[in-house]
């Protein structure tokens, strides 16, 4: 447990320090979310209706942008080899890494979507539903990103190919995530949120196993 805590502290410091990518990811997210209305037009009613979809898509793209930070640096400087040989199972290391990645990229994105709310004319109730959906769904995105990052860690241009492989896996998150914050969805919102949380749970179980397996096989 102390090893895992130490790992988490290390990941957290690396992500938030100078040269870390939290600020870049958040800015990217905000810029995409602000750019999309320019492509759609200034119709406030339409933007309010598309708002949850815009926020979700921007979050998805921003999380993909930071994907190769998950394992690549540790693979290059050899830390990953040390962790493989360390006392803690690699699956736990991956899970801690996913949590750290989520905390330093997805949570700031969720927080930044609060000041973006007036741009889409969200009322408080809609904003709250969207924030809950983002908190429930982004762990699945981070975990799928970990799978993509792990299987492409030995590739020089892995950051380019991994999104192609894992983007189809984001479909359930987008469907349930947008529906959970859609004012028109009515009673289906609750079940969408439950499906979303359930999918996140499932991916959080599958991803550490799959990613650890891929990281081990990459070393041979």
């Amino acid at each position: 447990m102390r090893t895992l805590a130490a790992l988490f502290t290390r990941d957290f410091r690396l992500a938030t320090r100078t040269g870390g990518n939290t600020l870049t990811v958040v800015l990217f997210f905000a810029l995409v979310a602000i750019l999309l209305p320019f492509a759609i037009g200034p119709d406030v009613a339409l933007l309010q209706r598309l708002g949850p979809a815009i926020i979700w898509l921007s979050a998805l793209l921003a999380l993909l942008l930071s994907l190769d930070r998950l394992f690549l640096d540790d693979h290059r400087d050899g830390s990953l080899a040390a962790m493989r040989a360390g006392p803690v199972a690699l699956e736990w290391v991956v899970l801690v890494r996913i949590f750290g990645h989520w905390l330093t990229t997805a949570v700031p994105i969720v927080l930044v979507s609060i000041p973006l709310a007036p741009l889409f004319n969200f009322d408080f109730e809609l904003l709250f539903a969207l924030l809950v959906a983002l908190m429930a769904g982004t762990p699945a995105l981070a975990a799928n990103a970990a799978i993509g990052a792990a299987i492409t860690v030995s590739l020089p241009r892995g950051g380019l190919i991994a999104p192609i492989v894992i983007l189809p896996l984001a479909i359930p998150v987008l469907i349930f995530g947008v529906a959970a914050a859609d004012p028109g969805a009515g009673a289906a919102r609750g079940s969408a949120l439950l499906f979303l949380a359930g999918y996140s749970m499932l991916v959080l179980v599958v991803a550490p196993i799959a990613a650890a397996l891929a990281l081990r096989s990459g070393a041979e």
């Binding site: 299987i151 799959a210 397996l213 891929a214």
Partner: peptide, 16 residues
Amino acid sequence: RPIAIITLVGAINIPI
């Protein structure tokens, strides 16, 4: 091996 892993992850995800 990495591609075998993503193929199996895909197999889990396709029904979902």
